[in-house]
Simulated assay, not measured.
Amino acid sequence: MPTVIDQPVEARLVAAAPRMSSIPATLHYDRLDPFAVRMAFPAPATLEGVDVCWTFSRELLAAGLHGAEGHGDVRVRPYGYDRTVLEFHAPEGTAVVHVHSAEIRRFLRATSELVAIGTEHLHIDLDHDLAELMRDAR
């Protein structure tokens, strides 16, 4: 069984201009970090011209399909039935992207097959993580 899911998605960047350009993005999930998902954007899609990866909770992504969620750097909300809006807030500004909700649902189904919702804590190796933390503290 795989331990990682990488799913390409088509994101539409909402710009100040009325036109929305499509950018490739990737949703990433790793069983070794079971509470988190990552959304990566390639360098050409960013203001700084470097790859950017945002990390946020799988729970936030799932809840955002049904209603506005998030109060920090990442916010998620539905936009009609077939789109989901993800807002990424940074000191440099805010990026707003639309993703087909079906792509997010498919990704979440795949992550749930890998690690069932509510069982994330069973996939964390606290002894290993503590040992790494202590090693880095020396």
Rank of each mutant, 00 (worst) to 15 (best):
A25N: 09
D136F: 00
V50C: 07
G118S: 07
T84G: 11
A40W: 00
P91V: 13
Q7Y: 01
P2G: 07
F56Q: 06
E59T: 14
A45K: 03
Y79Q: 15
Y79C: 14
E48V: 05
G49S: 02
F56A: 02
R138P: 10
E120S: 02
A62V: 09
A62F: 05
A25W: 01
A68S: 15
A90H: 11
S112A: 14
S57C: 03
M20C: 05
P91S: 10
T55G: 06
A102M: 04
T55I: 11
V99P: 07
P34W: 01
D6W: 05
F88E: 09
L13G: 00
H100D: 14
I104W: 01
E87R: 10
R75Q: 12
V50W: 03
A43G: 00
E120R: 07
D136A: 15
E113C: 12
D30S: 12
T111K: 12
H71N: 11
D33Q: 08
D127K: 10
T94F: 09
D125K: 02
A102K: 09
I104T: 06
Y79F: 15
R19Y: 07
L60H: 02
P18H: 00
E87Y: 01
L130E: 10
A40T: 15
P42N: 03
A45W: 00
P42W: 01
D125M: 03
E92I: 10
V115W: 04
M1F: 10
V74N: 02
L47D: 15
G49K: 01
H66T: 09
V97P: 01
V76Q: 07
R83K: 13
H128Y: 07
E59C: 02
G93W: 05
T119M: 08
P91L: 11
F35R: 00
L13E: 04
A90S: 15
L13V: 09
V74L: 06
P42I: 00
